Amino acid sequence: MKPDFPASGTRRLDTAAQTQAFGEELGRALEAGDVVILDGPLGAGKTTFTQGLARGMQVKGRITSPTFVIAREHRSEIGGPTLIHLDAYRLLGEDPEDVDSDPIGALDSLDLDTDLDTAVVVAEWGGGLVEQITESYLLISIDRETAVAEDPESEARIFTWQWRSGH
């Protein structure tokens, strides 16, 4: 990741547009080989965030939830890295412990056309698998409960991120 984006932090984002703008900011800072794990409950804004991230990376194709296809590849429009957007929850299957022996094999089974060293991987529900394929990754946790507890009408999300070591 380029050094102009902070390695850790917290932001409160009140709207989907703000969530996409934050994603776009991060997308401009990501480089080939970067891995991002998005952690948050259903409806937290993982795909909305990834839509902005894809805009920042300037990749082709509409960003939708990868839930039913498990992974989508989006090629760069400007010669930058490919975005691999995946749903690790579906990849893990019934027993997340099963992939511990071969996490790369689990990802290889997707038949992706891209070398992971030339791509940015963004994994929804990636905990337990994706961090095993990399030396370091950016973990982004999305909290939608805190703002709703303060104001039941709130649409705000609190994004917390930090670079972590894999393996």
Rank of each mutant, 00 (worst) to 15 (best):
S76Q: 13
Q162T: 08
G23L: 13
D117V: 08
L107P: 01
A106E: 03
E124Q: 03
R157W: 01
I78M: 13
E94W: 07
Q18C: 00
I140T: 04
F22V: 01
I63V: 15
G43I: 10
T48P: 04
T118S: 13
T118I: 05
L38Y: 02
L110V: 08
V148W: 02
A29H: 05
E150F: 14
R55F: 05
Y137I: 00
A88R: 03
V122M: 08
A147E: 15
G127Q: 14
A21Q: 12
I140C: 12
A29Q: 05
L92C: 11
T50P: 01
Q18Y: 02
D98G: 14
R55M: 14
D34C: 12
A156F: 11
E153K: 12
L139Q: 12
D117E: 14
A156Y: 09
D39K: 07
W161P: 00
V130T: 10
E31Q: 15
R90C: 04
D98S: 15
Q51K: 15
S154K: 13
D151E: 14
G61T: 11
T134S: 08
L138T: 00
S154G: 13
E25Y: 04
I142L: 07
T48A: 06
I37M: 07
D115Y: 10
M1W: 05
P152I: 08
S109W: 12
G52T: 09
G43M: 05
G56T: 02
L138H: 03
E97A: 14
D39C: 08
E155H: 15
T47F: 11
R144A: 07
G23S: 08
R12G: 02
V130Q: 02
S65L: 07
D14T: 08
I140A: 03
E124V: 09
F68M: 10
D102N: 14
R55Y: 01
I78Q: 14
L26E: 02
I37R: 01
T82F: 01
V120W: 01
G33L: 00
V130G: 00
G23K: 01
E31T: 11
R90E: 10
G126K: 03
G166S: 09
